[in-house]
């Protein structure tokens, strides 16, 4: 066989269930440890972020309205699809070097398990976070958690897949839609995940995945008023300040996980308290019959 040129893939964004190119026409090279180009990804602009938020805002009410059991089933289906793409995802994680094949496979498995955990929580977290409050008077008084809306998720560079999945699973679990900014150092697993989501049962727009630079996009995650909350990990102190300052303007919730976060810590990362920051508590008074 003659020497064949390798076909390096050009990944696109994942917005509203479709794979558009960035409107800016810009791309980023993803290189391995030796500096060889393994793929090109889009360098999303703020207009791509805007489009992703539009898509998320449109899809979110339907996702929140789906019953909890169905959301759980869909998250479980996502995990199944991840299992099916195990080899490709492990390859993507290892593509940029610095991580062994075995460790990469372990990361895919941990990501799959994390989705399974939150698939289970989907119809159970309201019982944990909600409550029946004692009140003086003939009333039943309930507090129930409801999703916040559209959540911006800024992923850490490492772990590129487990970080992303650990952040979006609790956000999606309660019925939020997510606009995700993938790992900058290795966005390929996020792109592959987009391709997985497109063929799972997740409605288009519920998860939107952008690849690009935190330097360009972080401030727009903070200032866009349709984004109801921001969950970030592995961001610099400057970006954290930017997020908090931008969010102070519109009162959105910002949760930044510190660099010490251990994504492999199942007990911490699969706790229902990961869901709690992006739900709103609704309290209902209902007359009790005398």
């Amino acid at each position: 066989m003659t020497n064949r040129l390798p076909i390096t893939k050009t990944y696109k964004l994942f917005i509203g269930g479709k794979f558009p190119r960035t409107e800016s026409g810009r791309s980023v090279k993803v290189c391995d440890a030796s500096g060889a180009v393994v793929a090109h990804t889009c360098r999303a602009s703020r207009k791509d972020l805007r489009n992703a938020v539009e898509a998320a805002a449109k899809a979110q009410p339907g996702w929140a309205g789906a019953n909890a059991y169905l959301r759980g089933q869909i998250l479980y289906r996502m995990a199944e699809m991840l299992e099916g793409k195990r080899a490709e995802l492990a390859g993507a994680i290892a593509a940029v070097g610095g991580i062994s094949d075995e460790a990469a496979r372990g990361e895919v498995d941990a990501s799959t398990d994390r989705l399974i955990a939150f698939a289970g929580w989907a119809d159970k977290y309201p019982q944990v976070l909600g409550c029946h409050n004692p009140v003086t008077g003939p009333y039943y008084n309930f507090s129930v958690p409801e999703p916040t809306g559209v959540i911006g998720v800024i992923c850490p560079d490492e772990p590129s897949l487990l970080g992303l999945v650990s952040l979006i699973a609790p956000v999606l679990c309660s019925g939020n839609a997510a606009v995700v900014l993938a790992s900058e150092s290795n966005p390929i697993p996020a792109c592959v995940l987009g391709e997985v989501l497109a063929t799972s049962d997740v409605p288009g727009g519920v998860v939107n995945i952008l690849t690009g630079l935190r330097d360009e996009l972080a401030e727009h995650f903070a200032s866009h008023r349709e984004i109801g909350g921001v969950l970030a990990a592995g961001v610099s102190a400057d970006h954290r300040r930017l997020l908090e300052a931008g969010a102070a303007e519109n009162m959105k919730r910002v949760r930044v996980l510190g660099d010490a976060t251990d994504f492999g810590d199942d007990a911490a990362m699969e706790s229902p308290w990961q869901i709690e920051p992006f739900v709103e508590t609704k309290t209902i008074w209902h007359p009790a019959s005398a």
């Binding site: 938020v53 727009h220 200032s223 866009h224 008023r225 349709e226 519109n250």
Partner: peptide
């Protein structure tokens, strides 16, 4: 303002 507004604004 440089900031995107929400639809419900």
């Amino acid at each position: 303002t440089g900031r995107y507004a929400a639809r419900y604004d």
